[in-house]
Structure formats: C-alpha cells, structure tokens
Amino acid sequence: METHPPLAGPFALGTFSVGHGAPFPGLLVGSGVLDLRTVPELRIPPGATLTTLDLLERWDSVLPVLHRLAESGWSGRHELADLRVHPPVRPHQILQSGANYRTHVVDLAVAHEPEGGRPAERVRAETAAMMDRRAAEGRPYMFVGLPSSVTGPYDDVVIPSWCAKPDWELELAAVIGRPAHRVAPEHALEHVAGYTIANDITARELVFRRDMPEIGTDWLRSKNAPTFTPLGPYLVPAAFVPDPGDLRVTLRLNGEAMQDESTEDMIFDVARLVSYASQTTELLPGDLVLTGSPAGNGMHWGRLLRDGDVMEGTVTGLGLQRNTCVAEEA
C-alpha cells in the first residue's frame, strides 16, 4: 500500500473530482474528503460554482468553519483513494523567486561557468560573497510566472519537443489569503493563508538569451510551458506551519534523492518575499509566492529530465506530489 508523509495539522484544503467529473473544493481529514459545496455556510449565489479560490477570498470567515467541520467528527463523504487530486488552487498571479537558496546559487554559478572559464573554487568564493551582499541589502530577485503552466500534483509533466534541457526545481509555495499591498515584512505572514508544494520545471537552455546577452534572462520560454508547474497536493493552513523557515524540501528522481535541503538555507524568508512582491503589485487571495529552489537540480548532477522519469516531491507537513515525465512527439 502506498504511503504518504503525514500532513501538518488536523486538516488540509484541496480540489478534487470523482473521475472526470467537475472539480470541487474539499476538506481533507485523515483519508476522508468532505465536499465543501454541501456545507450551507459556504454556499455562494445560485448558479455559481464554488472553488477553492472563492474560499480563499473569504478566508478569515471560512477558516473557522473548516476548523468546526474538522472537529465535528463527520465521516468523509468520499474516500481520498477514490478521488482525482487537482491543483489545490488556480491562482490569478504567480510570483517566483530566483537565486534564493545559498547553496543552490553557488552550484548554479559553477555549472553555468563556460568551459575554460574561472576555476570552480574561485566561482564558489565569488558567488558566496555575492550572496552575503544580497542578504545584507535585502533585495530578493523575483519574476512573474503564468497560471497556465500549473498542473496537478499527480499529472504528467509534458516535455515539449523544443526543450533540450528540462530540469526540476522543487519549492515551498505560500498561498495568499488576504490582499497584500505594500506590507511590511513583520506583517507579511498575516496575509498568507497556507502553504503548498510547487515544482518549477525549467528549460535550462532557454534561461539566458544568448542571442541578446544584454537583455539577460527569458523566463517566458524557460519556465511557462503547459504542465511546467506541478502544484499541490493540498493547501495546509499557515497556522499548522509555525516556522516556514524550518521545513525539509526533498525531491527524488526515480527513487533517488536529488534535492534534500532545509528552507533555513533561504537567503530571504517567506515574510521578506511576500513583503517585497507586495511593494510593486497587489497580491490577491489565491496568488502564489514561490520561494525558490534548493541545491540539487539536474544541472548540478549533470542529469536532466527524460521521458519516463518519475519525480516525487515532499515538503515537511505538506504531503507528496508525484509526476511522470512524458516527451512530446516532435
């Protein structure tokens, strides 16, 4: 029997369906899932379809209802094993963090150094010094992802025919529950409804515009193909994750651990990332703030994704996602 890691807290929120039926928001308690469309307190106007995003837009009033439901001792209307698990939320916006794990940035700098360039030891030392300066200046590096790249936690990841170097990047993702605009770091976590897992698949050969080096990076093509952001399986309320800076991020490729690092290695923590993003844009309920990926991606190992590979990603207390890579035919 398949074993999944335990979730933090007594319940989680997700999006499910019976087979190919309509997705619905569900409350997961143990192995049971309650269809939240059946809860009178959560209903929306007739003719509308209740989604997890609707619940996040009313998070302050919805969360106490979820607590009462979880404590009421109801038996799940569905068994989790009988359901399909979808991305827990369909976000309006995805804010992504780059170069946010110290060891990961150092490893990437070494991997991207041209053949015959600077010695690895020098690259590591110079990059480590740069990380120290960044942490002191307090300026994260963030960019925007497309919601159309999101796929389910157990869906296939399709490697496009044009993608030569697909790579994995498992990340902790914060899910916004209250609108956030120009919030200070000390108040930023008050706007986070919960946490989930994201895998930020990247076409490594397209990250840098070699035809226009003065322009720099091309995040559109390198990160936003359909299925390039597996998300979930669930949204675990923030109250059950007391310290997002002390979680283990682990990715296994065909059973072998490739990434296995603590979020303590982040240069900028969740609060600083949410605050920084909110200085420019208004973060909305359901939006995702991806916090960067730790060391151990394919570029580090010299082994990139192939047709048939199986990725298994876990973050402490947030569950497990499993995605099979499928090569698109040319």
Rank of each mutant, 00 (worst) to 15 (best):
P46R: 07
L50V: 07
G98K: 05
P91F: 14
R90E: 11
P64L: 05
R102N: 02
S75W: 08
E115Q: 07
V110C: 07
R43V: 09
A109S: 14
S61T: 15
N100G: 08
V62Q: 06
G47V: 12
D107F: 05
A48V: 07
W74I: 05
D107P: 00
G116P: 03
L83W: 09
P46L: 07
L55P: 03
R77M: 10
S72D: 11
R68P: 02
T49Q: 09
R68N: 12
R77I: 06
A70W: 13
G76D: 06
G98Y: 09
A81E: 10
D54M: 01
L95H: 11
P88S: 01
T51R: 04
S61P: 01
V110W: 11
R58E: 08
V39D: 08
P87S: 14
L55I: 02
L108Q: 08
R43P: 02
G98L: 05
H67L: 06
P87F: 09
R43K: 15
A109F: 08
H78D: 00
W59T: 03
R90M: 12
L69A: 11
L56M: 09
H67E: 14
E41W: 09
P40Y: 14
R77G: 10
L63E: 15
E57C: 13
P45R: 11
D60I: 06
W59E: 01
D54V: 01
R102H: 10
T38M: 11
G47R: 04
H104Y: 02
E113H: 10
D82T: 05
Q96V: 14
Q96M: 12
L66Y: 10
S61N: 13
Q93N: 11
P91A: 08
P46S: 09
E57H: 15
E57K: 15
L56H: 14
T51I: 02
A99Q: 06
R68W: 14
L95M: 08
V110H: 07
H86N: 01
N100K: 02
G73H: 12
R68T: 11
D60N: 11
P114Y: 03
H67N: 10
E41T: 13
S97H: 08
T52C: 10
L108D: 03
E71V: 04
S75A: 13
T49L: 10
R90Q: 13
P45W: 11
P88R: 13
V110M: 10
V106D: 00
E115I: 07
L69V: 09
N100E: 04
V39C: 09
G98P: 02
G73C: 11
